[in-house]
Amino acid sequence: MAEFLFAAAAIVLVLTGLGLARMLWGPSPADRMMAAQLLGTGGGAIAVLVAIAGDMTAVLDIALTLALLAAFAAVALTLGEPGSKRRGGEE
């Protein structure tokens, strides 16, 4: 069973890694951020697979941290936008 789960983790890495092409192509920052988002979810999946397959429950905490901060980068992206008058400045 462990081999299957490790292989599954490798496949998730390859698949989400392919998503990085979107980071290179864009065209908009929103698209590029989606590649990061997919990799974040994939990273969580890889961590849970490795944690159970390798019987390292501590690795689950990595997945927990990644999941907790999943939306963080996307929130930061919306802080300032071209076209809006205020860009994170003060009122």
């Binding site: 980071m23 920052p29 590029r32 951020m33 590649a35 990061a36 990799l39 974040g40 990595i62």
Partner: peptide, 11 residues
């Protein structure tokens, strides 16, 4: 954004 991706990969 690429740097954030790099941070995830390094983790």
């Amino acid at each position: 954004i690429a740097f954030i991706v790099l941070g995830l990969l390094l983790s």
